[in-house]
Amino acid sequence: MSTTRQDRQIDNIEFNVADIARSKAFYGAAFGWSFVDYGPTYSEFDDGRLKGGFTTGEPVRPGGPLVILYADDLVATQQRLQAAGATISRATFAFPGGQRFHFVDLDGYELAVWSAAPTH
């Protein structure tokens, strides 16, 4: 039995959203994601490494697993998120190896963004 490069890796994340166009505008502005629409109730997003989707086919269910994004510049990313309408739910904090903050998107999903600790 052979395996693929994607075996045991996150392959897709799906968000149930209230408004696909609003979600595309939010994540496009904050992270520069690209999108491909597959009908009126589904749009695929691509961050350049990972794909997922926005759907209106199910009710919005805030919560679930914490999705953590990486950013080289944590401050600039937080500023872009706030400009796009995000609420910072947990201020930046340090942990071994880096720092991160949490934010809530326009549909109530909480996500986090982290950055590696600078090397000396």
Rank of each mutant, 00 (worst) to 15 (best):
G98I: 05
R61A: 11
G64A: 03
A18D: 04
Q9R: 15
A76R: 12
R5W: 00
V60R: 04
V60K: 01
F101K: 12
G48I: 11
H120T: 13
T77K: 13
P118E: 14
Q82R: 14
P59V: 02
L81G: 10
G97V: 07
G53S: 04
G63V: 01
A91Q: 13
A86G: 10
F35V: 12
K24W: 00
V75D: 15
T56Y: 00
L74Q: 11
G64W: 04
D46E: 11
A71K: 10
L106N: 08
V67E: 00
L69W: 10
F31S: 04
A94D: 15
E44T: 05
T92L: 07
G64P: 05
G63F: 05
Q9E: 09
F93L: 11
S23H: 00
R49G: 01
T41L: 01
D7W: 11
A84T: 06
Q9Y: 10
R80H: 05
R100I: 00
R5L: 12
A25E: 14
A21M: 02
S89E: 10
D107A: 07
Q6G: 05
Q78H: 01
P65D: 08
Q82N: 01
R61G: 08
D105Q: 08
R80Y: 08
S34T: 15
E14V: 14
D37W: 08
F35P: 04
G108Q: 09
F103P: 01
G32H: 11
G57C: 06
S89T: 15
P59R: 04
R100W: 03
R100M: 14
A116V: 10
L50V: 13
L69Y: 07
G85Y: 10
V17I: 12
H120G: 15
Q9P: 00
T77E: 11
P40H: 02
F93M: 14
E14S: 09
E44D: 05
F15Q: 02
T87L: 12
D7L: 04
P65H: 08
A25Y: 01
M1R: 10
V60D: 02
D107R: 10
W33L: 09
K51S: 13
K24I: 15
D37A: 14
H120L: 13
Q99W: 01
A84Y: 14
L50E: 02
T56M: 02
